[in-house]
Design a protein around this nucleic acid. Structure first.
Lengths: 192, 192
DNA sequence: ACAATAATGGAACGAACGTTCTATTGTCAA
DNA sequence: TTGACAATAGAACGTTCGTTCCATTATTGT
């Protein structure tokens, strides 16, 4: 992608992040610094070709699949990336990366600190695929005493157990069958 | 809110989740099962009053502050989706939740374990807003010896320092000015 | 059952839309 | 410098928009 198109795309991404919609061409003119809808139409056509924008049936613009790509750096390369989207950067789309099966995936807030040594803090959100079957070693959401609990699934000779990652909490050995709500496939946290 | 309005709102939320935009009134008619734009206008007025919808300067609809309120699971309560606490995030996409300023945001892979006690593990990805100025206490990506390093920004009498969250690592006291690449606004991890 | 009110359907209208065209300006290569 | 091509500005146009109005239907209370 040309550098100038990256700059225009970034301005559209900011507008979308702030407003939740993409504007009409006449407004895009102002956003990208053009004085006519003609070059906006040309820009839109280029961005459509590359998967960043699409049109709705009503001829409005909507984000394309690539609209939410974000540049990603390897932390051992302090590279001085140019912000206006060096086209050679790797990119990652967070939702596509974290959510494989949207129809069976839910987000669950983490309330306690029983998994703190595994890097899961209170206030984090975990991404849960709803499944009743899990493997030993999986992070799972189980239902104990009608409450969700997040633990690692373990196995002892008497059956399955739930292992915390915090020495202040005991291993849970449920009587009877253990109910698994789902397996944890991801986690995220916001600082600001 | 009236139950019927909740149903209409849910249909609009689904449309938005799928398309990334809200449609014009004529399309909303079809979505909610009305045959005229008049009752759509009345519905929109009600939803605006309650903070679910807003208008753009171009008279298009955009999500209001409350549009993203959706039931999500709260981990202390079992099994049935119920509204989480007031201050909880709600989001249609994780990207939307974590990325506020796309044009200045990049992702950085975490390689070391110097922040392990802060719940940031090797292999995690952090979301970085590129800024040269940070506050004490912020998680920052700094550039030391031409490499990225992730630490908490601290202050000593001789200047700013970089504080790890792992006792195996020393506080870093850069000679001369410290170069801040950006501040860390979020983090995510994938398990499977 | 009847009256009052609310909700909906359909029509109308000025404004804005996306698209296309032409003229002008800008860029690049010889 | 000149010519060819690309990019942009400005104008035009048929379509669609959001808004408003009025008539009809639905709902509610007495």
């Amino acid at each position: 992608m040309e550098n100038i198109d990256s700059t225009y795309l970034a301005k559209l991404q900011d507008h979308y992040a702030e407003n939740g919609v993409l504007p009409p061409y006449s407004t895009i003119m102002g956003i990208v610094g053009m004085k006519s809808k003609s070059p906006v139409a040309a820009l839109v056509a280029r961005l459509k070709l590359q998967g960043y924008l699409e049109s709705t049936p009503e001829k409005r613009l909507k984000p394309g699949r690539r609209f939410f790509e974000r540049p990603i750096f390897d932390s051992v390369r302090a590279g001085f990336p140019s912000p206006a989207g060096d086209a050679n950067h790797d990119t990652l789309t967070i939702d596509e990366f974290l959510v494989s099966h949207p129809s069976s995936t839910v987000l669950v807030n983490v309330k306690g600190d029983s998994m703190i040594d595994a890097g899961i803090l209170p206030g984090d959100t975990v991404i849960v695929e709803k499944r009743a079957v899990a493997n030993v070693g999986d992070l799972v959401i189980a239902i104990i005493d009608n409450e969700f609990t997040l633990k690692t699934l373990g196995k002892e000779k008497n059956g399955y157990v739930l292992i915390p990652a915090n020495p202040a909490y005991p291993v849970i050995r449920p009587k009877g069958d253990m109910e698994i709500f789902g397996i944890v496939v991801g986690q995220f946290r916001k600082y600001k």
